[in-house]
Design a protein around this nucleic acid. Structure first.
Lengths: 347, 347
DNA sequence: CTGAAAGCGCTTACAG
DNA sequence: CTGAAAGCGCTTACAG
């Protein structure tokens, strides 16, 4: 009968149990406790001792101290993920993938900064002083990587163009962009607009460049005036669109491609507010293929990006690096593909 | 002239600099280095030595090792925030507030789990084994707090009813709920529906209970059939609403109150799709007052919840706890208030 | 003002 | 199979 207020010998008060206390109670050395607690006892600890240690661990509620362990081993079992934009449905998928691949062996911790910003040099140094076993960086920019200068296990996500210098998992957004341009051209559009993100994120530049190039090759014209760039906010997009639409209409624009689905939602909303038929008067499409795009009204044609897969693969690469392995492919690229829905086609 | 490939004495190869290396170079003891590096030199280190140490720190790029420091001091300078729902615009505000109040003294790390879930007992123990200086827990449930059982510096956010046992910062959602009921009653509505979240989060229960009670007191009827509960997903809400609307309409429902703005967006969307005039045929309102609610079409009447303030106050309380102070008020409650917009009133 | 030394909790050769 | 001991990098009384 163990009651909480009758402190067990070796577990005085509410102090957390140490390996020494466990060793005491099990009548073994702390070396043995360490072996058992870390599952390294195979052929190195007798069955009897193993049982006693396990018993003592259970009784004292012992958990290996992360700090002591990290100091001794030189690294922690923490994986830190740095990301500029946490409040984004797409990002939630990426995280889910990372967690899946990391499993129980590493603890995932997120380092967040202000919207759209990466940590400063000082922040980064403090982060590294926690000795993470590995680092995952989403949508990094040059400046950040400069500061980092760390050859620690590091994998970049969604960092097109950086795969030469760092391990990275990227999305082949260009392929989807070309499919989208092809789809719009095939549907008979001749003049299209492009709505971009306003942060200079590499993936956005890639989306736009690939789309514009493909459009050009297909004889799809993107009038100079028909380009817009806004923050990723439905309301902002809607109001900006409201003010440029007359000019676009004048120019003969009949379709809009957007850098993200969220941008597209803004267009859909405003189009509806002014009685435009979608896709009749205006076809709309985006990138990301967020869950909502399946159920929006009309449903949204979008370039599907495998967010969860992105997270999973990045975490798998990181695991290899953390295990000291070499990477077969330093850069991985995941396919994207167009999902055609109601916002660009009538059934 | 220092070149990167000519290792400085005391900084061989690319190994990170230690206090010992700094001490060596500055010709002082590591004790002195520690004092200077931590800004505790005031009146304890001579100006000369301080300058030399600072110089050496700079030259070697020394950063105090977080692990060594934590082990020695017994705690880290990390604050871990545990939250069940990271991909929520409201949550981004909370985080921003936390970061502001925490400042440079502590590093904020987020521990995320799968959507709507809090960490398991095992996860929690591993988290605590990192010896965080403090813990922030958003929307916790009983079970989680049970497991935690930690009297460590801990502040709960959005945990109505738990303020007795733990330090907490809560939102007075009941007040906003009553205002909302009052507003709808004053506008002449007699039958209203309620759309709830599906997770049993305490704040959702509070919102609903307060709204229903106030409605009852005002003679506003909420027909039994006119209650819906769905996940926080615009698409899901829209399709669920589509199937129940005929019955609601039959019952004479002319207004809908929603547990979150996101729910309300789903209603707005579907209402629009079926040609309902808002607020003419149906008035719609939510809780959260997300940024988009100002710009949606129509703009959304919503109970404003001060997310950033919530984060800031929670972090401030935690700082007091971490500094060893007593809390004047163990439970803080922030006001909520109704913001009336186009979805419930014609101009 | 300064430094030698103990100690934080653990892991890992090493000797037995 | 087992344990004594060194060492990870730092901080903090303590003695001077």
């Amino acid at each position: 009968m163990e009651s909480a207020d009758a402190p067990l010998p070796g577990a005085p008060g509410r102090r957390r149990a140490t390996a020494a206390m466990v060793a005491d109670r099990a009548q073994v050395s702390t070396a043995t406790v360490s072996l058992v607690a870390n599952g390294k006892s195979r052929g190195r600890v007798s069955a009897v001792n193993e049982a006693r240690v396990l018993q003592a661990i259970h009784e004292l509620g012992y958990v290996v101290d992360g700090i002591g362990s990290s100091l001794s081993r030189g690294v922690s079992s923490t994986v830190i993920m740095v990301a500029p934009d946490i409040s984004n449905p797409f990002f939630a998928n990426v995280i889910a993938g990372v967690r899946t691949a990391l499993g129980q062996d590493y603890q995932l911790l997120l380092s967040v900064t202000d919207a759209g910003t990466l940590p400063s040099a000082a922040d980064t140094r403090r982060l590294l002083s926690l000795r993470p076993a590995g680092l995952l960086v989403d949508a990094p920019d040059e400046a950040f990587l400069e500061e980092l200068s760390a050859p620690d296990p590091l994998v970049l996500l969604d960092a097109p163009g950086l795969g030469e210098r760092f391990a990275a998992v990227n999305l082949d957004v260009a392929h989807g962009a070309r499919e989208l341009a092809g789809h719009l051209a095939a549907a008979g559009h001749r003049k299209v607009a492009y709505v971009d993100g306003i942060t200079g994120t590499a993936t956005f530049e890639l989306r736009r460049a690939a789309f514009l190039a493909a459009a050009d090759a297909l004889g799809l014209e993107v009038p100079d005036a028909a380009c817009l760039a806004t923050t990723i906010d439905v309301g902002v997009v809607a109001s900006e669109f409201a003010s440029v639409w007359p000019a676009w209409q004048q120019a003969g624009v009949t379709a809009v491609a957007c850098a993200t689905d969220t941008h597209a939602y803004g267009i859909l909303q405003e189009a509806r507010a002014r009685g435009l038929r979608v896709p009749g008067d205006l076809a709309v499409a985006g990138f990301d293929d967020l869950p909502y795009s399946r159920t929006s009204n009309p449903s949204l044609t979008s370039v599907h990006l495998p967010g969860e897969e992105l997270g999973r693969q990045a975490a798998q690469q990181l695991r290899r690096l953390m295990a000291g392995e070499m990477l077969e492919d330093q850069e991985l690229t995941l396919a994207s593909s167009l999902v055609v829905r109601g916002s660009t086609t009538v059934d």
